[in-house]
């Protein structure tokens, strides 16, 4: 039994025994060079999407454009106060805080924990989420206490002729 099954019938570089092609399994110099050229081709093709994405970023197509939107008149927002608004969509609640004469910050105020609305605590100088006492830094939107781990998305604001406008949303960076 052992001897019967353990024999190689004949010496041949062909494991199928019904296809005959000369040197099918041999990788010669030319075949190796072909493989290398093929590899170069694969590299070239796989570079294309990166180039396209990078070009897109360079042209600023990665940033979404929103029409600028009036938030409030400067004179109706005293320093240290906050006002709620909606940007960029009508269900994206946001908050604008006037920190000083010139300095305004705005964030989308859905808490990054479970999306409760975040409030501005004027006397404590920080943003508070009442649901689980998450706190955010008012200057950057970064979480400082409680369950939230991600910063609040920042909204770019611009002041023109005594009116505060929302002009864009900062891209999310993890």
């Amino acid at each position: 039994m052992t001897d019967k099954n353990n024999k190689i019938p004949f010496n041949e570089d062909n494991y199928t025994h019904n296809i005959n092609r000369n040197n099918e399994r041999k990788l010669d110099r030319r075949g190796f060079m072909k493989t290398l050229v093929g590899a170069a081709g694969v590299f070239a093709v796989s570079s294309l999407p990166w180039g396209v994405l990078a070009a897109k970023e360079l042209n600023g197509l990665g940033d979404k454009k929103y029409p600028k939107q009036k938030i409030i008149d400067v004179k109706s927002l005293p320093i240290g106060d906050a006002v709620d608004f909606y940007f960029p969509g009508e269900h994206d609640s946001a908050i604008l805080i006037r920190l000083s004469d010139e300095k305004y910050v705005a964030y989308q105020n859905a808490c990054t924990h479970l999306r409760c609305p975040v409030f501005w605590k004027k006397d404590e100088g920080e943003m508070l989420c009442p649901c689980h006492h998450g706190k955010f830094d008012v200057e950057t939107g970064a979480p400082t206490a409680g369950p939230p781990r991600r910063p609040l998305p920042e909204i770019y604001v611009k002041v023109e002729n005594g009116t505060v406008f929302a002009v864009g949303v900062k891209r999310y960076e993890a």
């Binding site: 590299f43 994405l53 970023e57």
Partner: peptide, 17 residues
């Protein structure tokens, strides 16, 4: 986020083929 360098490297890769 150095996108110019990205494009440069991509071009090199394409030319190498």
């Amino acid at each position: 986020e150095n996108y110019t360098n990205t494009i440069g490297a991509a071009i090199i890769n394409v030319i190498l083929f």
